[in-house]
Design a protein around this nucleic acid. Structure first.
Lengths: 167, 167
DNA sequence: CTTGCGGTGTTATAACATATCATTTAGACG
DNA sequence: CGTCTAAATGATATGTTATAACACCGCAAG
């Protein structure tokens, strides 16, 4: 376990020390679960680690495959439960456009995520959607609609994929 | 056919003369297809009519059921093709959050839709997302990401459902 | 110790979506 | 008027995503 991936792989769309980022995020999640009395079980921990290792959107079944390979739950519900836990507690987000999941880039901070989804390499960067939310909330209020959750996703091409044009 | 629904049903979340709105939208679509050389075939026309009659998000299979009842295509691809045509040409939108489709409220106008989705009654109102898009495009540009398409969806409760609290 | 609750295992199936190839239809063009 | 072509539809099969339902287990509170 702890496969030690290449030290520098793109996150969002920028390079960084990846093995540290995985470890740090995992440690932070662990700490927060302890603090909030959440149960950071092996499946949940490993599911988060899987998402972090890739830093791209992964389908539930893709995560499941990897869990299976390690004997951590063999059926879809196992993956969905783990992912639901991560999403419910802000360790990961669901990307609706892709029916997929991605590790949160800044867990702990209260934020409204917006995603930039590269249609070539499928990598996902997370940015903030607060202004968009505010605008939507006020537009909605006019009709008496109460906004509870906002979802902002942009599809396009990241810098890398735009350069290597024909990917 | 042309079931003549109740004359006043909510659209978006406001009341209006529904039978007129269906007729008008259908006529407008017909006119635009003629103008642009698009083929507004019976399946496509009826699919749009089905979406318009309800003014809520409908799954492809839900639309399919109704098409089947009239002998217009019996298999999933029939519905998906019709819906894809409507979406591609701006007569309808896909609501990612619901994996569902909804008739466009202002077809013909070039716009970036934003949706208000009531989680109680599942009705969907369409508003505009231009400011959100602008903000996102500029945020994305910082990392060299080129935005091609933006998706904004808000989940919450509409005025009616908030009143009749426990629905 | 027992009871209750949260988490997990397991089976089955629901819901959403598309690949592929055959057939039909509408319009373009000679 | 034929006939060619491209678009649309028909039909079969299958792929992908998601959840319902119920059994079981372990742990902590009483």
């Amino acid at each position: 376990m702890e496969p030690q991936r290449h030290p520098t792989e793109p996150v969002g769309f920028a390079r960084h020390d990846h093995s540290h980022c995985v470890e740090d995020a995992l440690a932070a999640a662990e700490a927060r679960c302890l603090y909030e009395g959440l149960r950071f079980t092996p499946v949940r921990r490993r599911a988060l680690e899987i998402l972090l290792e890739r830093h791209r959107a992964m389908g539930a079944y893709e995560v499941l495959e990897r869990l299976q390979a390690e004997g951590l739950g063999a059926q879809p519900p196992a993956a969905y439960r783990a992912l639901d836990f991560l999403v419910a507690n802000g360790f990961a987000h669901r990307v609706e456009r892709l029916n997929a999941f991605v590790a949160c880039n800044h867990p702990g901070e209260d934020h409204i995520p917006a995603f930039l989804i590269c249609r070539s390499c499928n990598r996902v960067a997370e940015t903030v959607a607060l202004p968009a939310r505010a605008q939507l909330v006020s537009a909605a209020a006019a009709s008496g609609f109460e906004v509870e959750r906002v979802l902002v996703e942009a599809e396009g091409r990241c810098a890398a994929c735009r350069q290597s044009d024909s990917e």
